[in-house]
Lab assay of single mutants.
Amino acid sequence: GTEIELESKNGQREHYTATSEDEARKIIEKAVRRGIKRIELRGASEQLIRDMQEIAKQIGLQYRTDGSL
């Protein structure tokens, strides 16, 4: 699965493990709508990382991946 670590603007951290790319995408989209400061992805697919970079650029988000592409 993909591990997703979120940090909201007030510094609250949340951790999710998505079993599918679809689920990961839903978690990320929800977080973005809620207003999130930072997202870290571990074990994400190349496609998901590309999507994440696109989203991050659009809304000026900090993100990090573990680089295991």
Score class of each variant (00 low, 15 high):
Q62K: 10
E21H: 04
E54I: 10
T65E: 15
K57F: 08
L48G: 00
Y16I: 08
I49N: 05
A31V: 07
G1P: 10
K57Y: 07
G67I: 07
I39L: 09
I36T: 03
G67W: 02
K37D: 05
Q53M: 11
E21D: 15
R13A: 05
T65W: 06
S45G: 05
L61S: 05
E14I: 12
E46L: 10
N10S: 12
R64Y: 15
M52Q: 00
E3A: 07
K9F: 08
I39A: 01
D51W: 15
G11W: 01
E5D: 12
Y63K: 03
Q53V: 14
G1N: 13
A31Y: 06
M52N: 00
G43Q: 07
Q12C: 14
I36Y: 10
R38T: 06
L41I: 13
E54D: 10
I4R: 01
I39D: 00
R25H: 04
R34W: 05
A56Q: 03
E5F: 14
Q58Y: 06
I4D: 01
H15G: 03
R50I: 08
N10I: 05
V32P: 00
K30C: 14
T65N: 14
L69R: 02
T19I: 10
A56S: 05
Y63H: 07
A44F: 06
S68L: 12
G35M: 03
E54G: 06
Y63A: 05
K57C: 09
Q62G: 07
S68W: 14
E40G: 07
E21L: 11
D22R: 08
D22M: 06
G1E: 11
S68I: 11
Q47P: 03
R42C: 08
T65L: 05
I28M: 05
L61R: 03
T2I: 12
T2K: 01
T17R: 10
E23G: 04
D51T: 10
R64S: 15
Y63G: 06
L48Q: 01
G1Y: 15
R42W: 13
G35H: 05
S68C: 15
T17K: 10
S8K: 08
R42H: 10
A18Q: 04
T17Q: 08
T19Y: 13
Q12P: 04
K37R: 14
I49W: 07
D66P: 04
S20G: 05
L6K: 01
G43N: 14
R38H: 08
S68K: 06
Q47A: 12
S8G: 12
K26A: 12
L6P: 01
A31M: 05
E21M: 06
I28T: 01
I4Q: 01
R38M: 07
E54K: 08
I4H: 01
Q62T: 13
Q47C: 09
Q53W: 11
K9P: 09
G60V: 04
A31T: 02
Q62A: 10
I55G: 00
G11R: 01
R64D: 15
S20L: 03
K37E: 05
S20D: 12
R33A: 12
I36P: 02
R42S: 06
M52F: 10
K30T: 11
R34K: 11
L61N: 04
G43I: 01
I49E: 05
E5I: 14
R33V: 09
E5S: 13
L41N: 00
E14N: 05
